[in-house]
Design a protein around this nucleic acid. Structure first.
Lengths: 247, 247
DNA sequence: TTCGCCAATAATGTGCACATTTTCTCAAGG
DNA sequence: CCTTGAGAAAATGTGCACATTATTGGCGAA
């Protein structure tokens, strides 16, 4: 590290984007299940990885902790949450309650353009399943539920939905590290059919059962705690590369 | 827990509580509508008020901003959000969607103890209304909706519900600063009746109309932006008093 | 060996100094 | 009178030093 700088290396304006980039990168790693539950994220190590100050990492970690994506234990460190069985129950019940409300509104207010987008998404899911593209199937499966809530055009609902999905992603990677049991495309298709018929009761039941299936599958498996070299899962953010050239 | 160390000014564990106390105090002021929308919360002023370092205040403010309770504008400061008309629409739609999901579950799963708690709450609301206790009526009115979600015993749902309520509280204080148009007790009572009969359709309609009424009332009024001496609304937190004696 | 204690090391928590940016003040010029 | 701009003042942003706490490693006694 340089001892004292006569001038600022970068203007202050770029720093906000830098924060955002680091935040997005860690969020992505969690959402994609690339960080094992229980993994510790030491501030020094991350600061070195992203080539920023420790304070900057600290701020991002605490922000993620406020969103329950990470867990900060005072004087101990920051960890990827290790969801308990009760956490699974809480999160999936929240998913069910939340989507029930979404469906109740969609049945009353959806239009053709929304149905068209849902149909297009189902086609993409079926195509990924036919090709056997597992990673894409997982991604689309989660995106289906986001599509439902985004159709309402409500930023608050979308934000909360993403927080829930982020947390269930960690659970999936904990409880089923090996097999790829994604949402069945058939269940998504049946739900869309019920929506098209504006059949509230049927749509509610299908959504509820859908999340029940996922939750049940999770509880069958056992958690396999293990350590992990987290450094490998992060992609470099733009600014860190830029600064690396100066050294 | 006893202080063994030669000279601990304060035990390190107390600091977490201190953060929490300041966070709770500002949250309370927002929830109670004691902070006018648009009010700036300067870091060094708050630091002086609570008698803590500016960094500590800073952390709390950014945490509240992450929950959308406050708004941080880079290099400008932290402000109580000034909700736009579209914000009102988004928040109250979120309320409706969210409570619809809650009701759908409550109708299927509630038991006598939950109904008893709801009845007791209604009695308290009616009592406050009869006594003309406006502040208590406002508080109980918001608490009714929290009681509904808390009945599910789901921390995630409760947390999100409180975030929403916190944001709508600011809106109420912005758009109707004078009159006390709280939730009508009758509407709460009718909703409880529908729940008791396990009438999903009726309960959904009542909840929806209830929030529609509140939102409509808000939109009739005009925002009255004005400055405010925020220092008067904060109560001292324990630790700040303790330290004040040393000066 | 194994347990427990203590020093050594590493990691987190925090106050502070200083850099950067914005806002305020005021006066000169159109 | 209004506008504009330069400098001062005030507020926010950030890196760093140091305090505090947890973890590790080692050493001696049962």
């Amino acid at each position: 590290m340089t001892a004292k700088r006569p001038r600022p290396i970068r203007s202050g304006k770029g720093r906000v984007d830098l924060d955002e980039a680091i935040y997005a990168e860690i969020s992505r790693a969690i959402l994609h299940g690339q960080l094992q539950a229980g993994t510790k994220l030491p501030e020094h190590k991350l600061a070195e990885l992203f080539d920023v100050s420790r304070e900057r990492i600290r701020k991002v970690l605490h922000r993620l902790a406020a969103e329950r994506r990470l867990e900060v234990i005072p004087n101990r460190g920051t960890f990827v949450p290790r969801p308990s069985g009760d956490d699974v129950r809480v999160i999936y019940q929240a998913h069910r309650v939340f989507e029930a409300g979404i469906i109740e509104l969609l049945v009353r207010t959806m239009d053709d353009s929304i149905m068209a987008r849902l149909d297009a998404h189902l086609a993409a899911e079926r195509d990924a399943a036919r090709r056997g593209d597992r990673a894409e199937s997982v991604r689309l499966s989660g995106a289906f539920h986001l599509l439902l809530v985004d159709a309402l055009g409500n930023s608050e609902l979308s934000r909360f939905s993403r927080e829930l999905l982020s947390r269930s992603s960690v659970m999936v990677s904990v409880y089923e590290p090996a097999q790829s049991s994604v949402c069945a495309v058939d269940e998504h298709g049946a739900l869309v059919d019920a929506l098209r018929q504006r059949d509230l009761t049927k749509a509610l039941a299908l959504s509820r059962e859908h999340y029940d299936h996922i939750e049940q599958r999770l509880k069958l498996d056992q958690a396999v705690p293990r350590h992990q070299d987290f450094a490998a899962v992060f992609r470099p953010v733009a600014a860190s590369e830029r600064r690396s050239r100066n050294r």
